[in-house]
């Protein structure tokens, strides 16, 4: 029963596994760029999850074509949400990268742990 549901929802499961991978990368790596990559994996996994939520069996893109029934279109709302969320993710990542750049210029390393002793 559980396995059946899991098989049906394999997209969700993959998204969650991705989320965990991203999370693990985020906490285990001390290199800033790798941390940012972990963050992006987490973000993408959530987008993946949301897109899957909007999926409809045998659905088509949500663009109105005269003559076709509207109920056969996939859910446009998660797509709109993800569009917003992607822009947010891009902005966050860009800001984070610029901070990492500045960090590198100041401390000469991207390693958070190595810079810990440097109290400047």
């Amino acid at each position: 029963m559980v396995w059946n549901t899991l098989a049906d929802n394999i997209n969700y499961a993959v998204a969650m596994v991705l989320f965990c991978i991203g999370f693990y990368t985020l906490i285990i790596r001390s290199n800033l760029i790798k941390k940012i990559i972990g963050l992006m994996v987490m973000q993408v996994s959530v987008f993946f999850f949301l897109v899957s939520v909007g999926y409809l069996d045998a659905g088509r893109a949500p663009i109105v074509v005269p003559g076709e029934p509207p109920s056969a279109m996939v859910n446009p709302l998660p797509q709109a949400m993800i569009l917003t969320a992607i822009v947010i993710a891009v902005s966050t990542t860009a800001l984070f990268l610029s901070l990492a750049l500045r960090f590198y210029r100041h401390y000469g390393t991207l390693d958070m742990d190595k810079a810990k002793e440097d109290q400047r």
Binding site: L26, L32, K35, T92, L95, F96, L99, A100, R102, F103, H106, Y107, M112, A115, D118, Q119, R120
Partner: peptide, 13 residues
């Protein structure tokens, strides 16, 4: 400067 940048990174993380 260094410390605010580091604080901001910690915050973001």
């Amino acid at each position: 400067t260094g410390l605010p940048i580091r604080a901001a990174i910690k915050y973001m993380l």
